[in-house]
Design a protein around this nucleic acid. Sequence first.
DNA 1: GGCACTGTTGCAAGCGCGTGCAAATGCTGC
DNA 2: GCAGCATTTGCACGCGCTTGCAACAGTGCC
Lengths: 337, 337
Amino acid sequence: MSQKPFVSAQEVAERAGVSRSAVSRTFTPGASVSPETRRRVVEAADALGYHVNHLARGLMLSESGIVCLIVSDMGTPYRSSLIRAVTQQLQDAGKIAMLINTDRSDGSVDLALRQAIRYRADASIILSGMPDKSITQLCLKNGQRLVLINRDDDQEGPFRINLDDAAAAGRLVTAFLRAGCRRLAFANSEAGTPSLMAREHGFIAAAKAIGLEVVVERYGPTGYESGRVLAQRLLTQSERPDAVFCATDLIACGFMDAARHQFSIAIPGQLCVAGFDDIEQAAWSSYELTTFAQPVEAIAREAVTWLGKDGSDDPAERIHSVRLNADLVWRSSIRGG
Amino acid sequence: MSQKPFVSAQEVAERAGVSRSAVSRTFTPGASVSPETRRRVVEAADALGYHVNHLARGLMLSESGIVCLIVSDMGTPYRSSLIRAVTQQLQDAGKIAMLINTDRSDGSVDLALRQAIRYRADASIILSGMPDKSITQLCLKNGQRLVLINRDDDQEGPFRINLDDAAAAGRLVTAFLRAGCRRLAFANSEAGTPSLMAREHGFIAAAKAIGLEVVVERYGPTGYESGRVLAQRLLTQSERPDAVFCATDLIACGFMDAARHQFSIAIPGQLCVAGFDDIEQAAWSSYELTTFAQPVEAIAREAVTWLGKDGSDDPAERIHSVRLNADLVWRSSIRGG
DNA sequence: GGCACTGTTGCAAGCGCGTGCAAATGCTGC
DNA sequence: GCAGCATTTGCACGCGCTTGCAACAGTGCC
């Protein structure tokens, strides 16, 4: 690398024949600079290819503009669409996203948060496993703000964005009923995250309320393959279910594929299926899956606007939690509608 | 926010009863510190919750450890899997990824690169539209390294990772032929990126070499919906093709769905279909799509190891381009195999 | 004891920036 | 011409860190 890779404000100042402070002020909104000085600075800056060093600026302001996204399974349709929405909104708000992958081990969320602290990220948004309580405390103590999406953690301090999973699951029971279904089943993964469990419990509770039992099966990670295995298990039972709520669209896709191609079951003729997330594939005509839409854009907006608020106001008064609802998207994997 | 959100090396030094330099050296690999001092520093650091400020370190070393990922369509299966692989490899190499979304306008890649410069990113990896030549020059002048993935740009300076799109497409002609297909078609988007065009031209050329004509249709962006429209166009022609190469798996999925559900065409019975990318959905049993696998991990490895190399050696000798090949993954959307 | 040598440590400079403070400038009104 | 004021500019400091340099302590050997 060459000696002077980046051009500094000093050099711009010299070329423009002003002081370095003038340069700094030119690029600081709201600072007092005469039009003439500004013109000369901008000209010199363009000529030299100058760009404010955000590292140094972050050092001064103790506000880096960096927000950490801590994510697992980011190849997954739902996750990637959420990442997309959040980064876009962050950019619109003048911030920038750092991406940390936590697929490896379980302590990797903690490692990721440490990394976030090292880069003095203003905040971290967590879309994956739950961080240790000690770590979140460390973050908060370091002045870093925390957003938990669908983590449903009851810790104090972080801002939590959740869905009304249970309520949504409850509404689905009614829908199945209207379609004439009686033998309900729930296909879940073994991940056991709060949102998945809320869907399961909400579904069971609503069914019980009208006197119906739910067959629950859990298997593997939250993905397509698990859906196939779950179909294997649920569709070979003596009394085969006529309605299955899959905890996730990916599971639902696997389930439907196995049901149709392996067991030759007609959907929705002999079996109604619903999912959760409304991933792009749910709308594909091989699935036409009735599902609950994750309000991805709303989640992202909620997170970013909260970050935009100044944290200096009364902490007791600050909102620490928001619950959004997931709308049911009707497609033909359930009869009627 | 409180007065002193972050704890500095100064405070650790005071608590440990050593100088600030000792603290710094403790966290600098290869520096000379006695075991006793190190122990006391680490102890004090843990007690106070100290973390090296990478912003300040980046300022000193003029090496931030930040790598910018500049991406469009990141909700897309192929893109998100690539993002996943790259961020993971970057982390393994001790670097960190910044994510910039360029879905909005066309000049947004330039804006993104400017942002990368502001944060003194060591490098930028571009997975979306092509940046202006003036901007890439700006990056290089600023000592920033550039990786272009599947951009096939012929600029000097950036490191370019490409696939042998044309060669792969050529091999596919043979495969179609062996399946007894004669009326070949190519379904492309209107995006016109170098890799898409290379697939198209490679396919046409290989077909021509054995005396076959290819019907080419182009429509819209590179996605599922375009596949449906392309099916509409290609399957209503007087002489319906019996083999279609879709420029992308997403297009292929849309194409297959339309072919089966709208035109009741049997695949692979009456029509053979192939795609490109090997996204997860290609393996789903509703598609079983024969396709070319993007060597995602290899691409990521290639990019990250190049970044790891010291750029200070002879620039004339440095490798600036790599071409990987895409293996054909056989599934049942083509007869035989 | 004196010497050369190795291994540690503290000092201080500087990375590029924002900003409080005081000096300088320009302008108005008497 | 001068006081009074608003606006602009430069100086200098500090954000948290790394590192060259010099001082220092410890060791083995003559």
